[in-house]
Each structure stands twice: as C-alpha cells, then as structure tokens.
Amino acid sequence: MRIRIKFRKYGVMRFIGHLDIMRYFQKAIRRAEIPIVYTEGFSPHQVMSFAAPLGVGIISDGEYLDIEVHDSLSTEKAIEKLNQMMVEGIEITNYVQLPKGAGKAMAVVAAAEYQVFYKENDLDSMAFSYEQIRNGIDQYFHDRNEIVITKTTKKGERTLDIRPYIYRFQAYQKEGETGFSMLLSAGSQENIKPELVVQDFFRYFGKEYDKYAFQIRRVDVYAEASPEDPSGSRFLPLDHFGERITQEREQVNG
C-alpha cells in the first residue's frame, strides 16, 4: 500500500539540504520500524520519493514524501510513532493512504504557497512596511499584464514572463511576521522560486534586496484538483488526495 506523509521543517533543520533530509527519513523510518518495501538486489533501498525539494534556509509547513509499505498502523498511531523518532525541527503532521493509481507526489506537484517575511519585525530596518507592500503589489502585480524577468540558469540567461505563473500575490502580516504571501507555479512545468518574485519586486521599486533579511516559509504544496472535486478549488494540498487510516481499517489490513 502507498502512504503519503506530510511534515513540517523548521528551526535549525532549515540548514539541512534536500538530499540529507532524504537520508534522514530513510533512517527515521527504520527507527520507527515502519514496514517499508525494499527494492531487490545487492543494495536494496526503500521505496520512497519526495514531492519537491526545499532550498537550504527555507522552513516549511507542507513537505511531502510517498512511501510504499507492506501494512500500516492507523494514521493517528503512525504519526505518533514517527514523531517519537523525529529531531526537533521535523514534525509529522499527516499520514494518509493513497488510492490505487494516484500519481506520485513528485509528478503531481502544480503549485506551492509561500510566505516571505522579515526576520526582524522592526519597522526602522524594513525597506517596505505592510501598507507599502500592499500598495506595491497593486502596482507591481495587479496593474500589469506581464512581468518579464531575466532568469539565470545553467544554460545561460533567458527572459520569462512570470505573470501567468503567479497565481496569487498578497501582503502578509501575522503574529509578528510582515512580508509577502504568494501562490506560485511549481513542479516540472514551471518552477518559480519565491525569492525570484520578491527580488524582482524590490528591483521594480529601485530598492536593494537583502536576501538575509528575509525568512521564506513554504506553507503548502498543491496538485491540480479534479474538475469534479466538490471543493471547487483549482488546487488542493497533496495530502488531500489520500485517505486517513482509521483504527478499524488498520485491523483489517494488519
């Protein structure tokens, strides 16, 4: 059976890169004695895949990995067992069974939601106040039909209109955090990094962007919802595509 796990990454764990997070989960799953499926051969490895890599320095409330298991505890018990094996800075928040034929996390990613906020919530040191950001977004985003940026890739530079890939762009203020909130295209189609948008916002207003002044948080990762989905939303979080495993189901499977 296939399982999708959702987790948070915060605190000092933001300095652990994607490959090391994968290694971390391989070992954590062994410690939690989750009956994961291994590949055949002399060096068997766990059947595990992650949704979308998260850059070093970024925190997240919505990271996902898919695993294949022989059988499973209930969602509640599995979360508890896994969380006993976690270090501070990684917290399992969901554990659902995927229906047959569900796409791999990596393949279905379509959008990601981010908050980009000042590390020091101190008006004097901020280049933009909350109000300025709100007004600025009107000018920068809502009033324009295209936002052409120069993207530097391994192959060189290319220009790109990112306007169609920004699904939502708003000012953000909550619990002492001030900055930007945005829903961006993600995955294999066009992967837009939040830093690119904020950096271009600064450039547009002729201000210098200091990347160390901001903390980026990925809020969640989404896939396209089916048109028949009762929610009517265009995007749904990745764990929406699986089902919680109840105590009764656990017994049936076990």
């Binding site: 605190g11 300095f15 070992k27 270090v87 501070e88």
Partner: peptide, 11 residues
Amino acid sequence: PARYIGNEVNM
C-alpha cells in the same frame, strides 16, 4: 552548514 548546528539524532 550542517557541520555546525548540532541537533543530530541521539544528541
């Protein structure tokens, strides 16, 4: 940076 932050499993 992981060399300098501690927080490893079983720390």
